[in-house]
Amino acid sequence: MEDPHNIPHNQVFRPYNLSELFSFWNRFPDAVLFAGGTDLLRGQTKRLFTFPKTFISLDKVEELKKISRTERYLEIGAAICLSDILRLGKIVPEGMVAIINSIGNLRLRNLASIGGTILSTHRYSDLHAILIAQDATYELKSASNARWISASKFVTSGTELLQEEQALISRIRIPISSWSYVFHKKIGLLNRDDPDGGTFLLLCNTEKNLIMDLRMIFVGSKIIRFKDLETNLLGQTVPIGEKSMESLLVNCSDLVASEMAENKYLQNSILRSITVALSGI
């Protein structure tokens, strides 16, 4: 029977642990998971929200709100909000602090969860840059199984895996490492939704003026990992000579042009960022 008053009949479940969550989810497989809600609710400007018929709120699930640290890793529960990650202090990688501070604003960061940010539907979240560059892994948990997947593999096949296995991201594990040089550049509108924007990140370790480790990545509407450049620069002396720099930039320029053929602004911004980043090593 149609509801003459058009009153929404949404069901909201608020489980207290993963066992309850999977039990609800098994009964209602179409239920949408709701953490901070920033991805789901932003862009909705009508007076009342348009909600899925059934959703599961994750804000009370204990296992998703844990933070732990070992000598090698920092583990963050997927429902931890971005501001709480910043409050952990110096154990948070420098690149991660810079990127989180460029996402949204202070109020939104108090709502947005790290898990929800990773799964952002607007475009690839800037957070992927640091998570991929630092070889982070995500724990995908379902009712019967738990496994770890690398951040780089997740961007290609993670969403399908989550749907197939009816799983969620429960923890994010970030290796603790320090870098002698970190360069981050936000491209596009700062602290705003910008489908044409992105983030450029370079992490470098040098020892006795030699590049020992280097990670370079751009994340926006596409993800560009500069693997060839990373390999070519290993063992090179710093500062990088002019001729080497020119040849590196030509290679990068070809890669960027092929990935971002339609967007001259992004091409130029990425190349400019690469030039500045490499000059600073």
């Binding site: 909201v12 608020r14 809600g37 920033t38 609710l41 932003r42 929200f49 909600f51 709120s57 804000d59 909000c81 501001s83 202070l106 109020r107 939104l108 108090n110 709502l111």
Partner: peptide
């Protein structure tokens, strides 16, 4: 802006059930 559970949040993005 309101302070919700000790944090500054945009109340326009907080649904009633939360």
């Amino acid at each position: 802006s309101v302070i919700f559970n000790g944090r500054l949040v945009p109340s326009c993005l907080i649904p009633a059930f939360k």
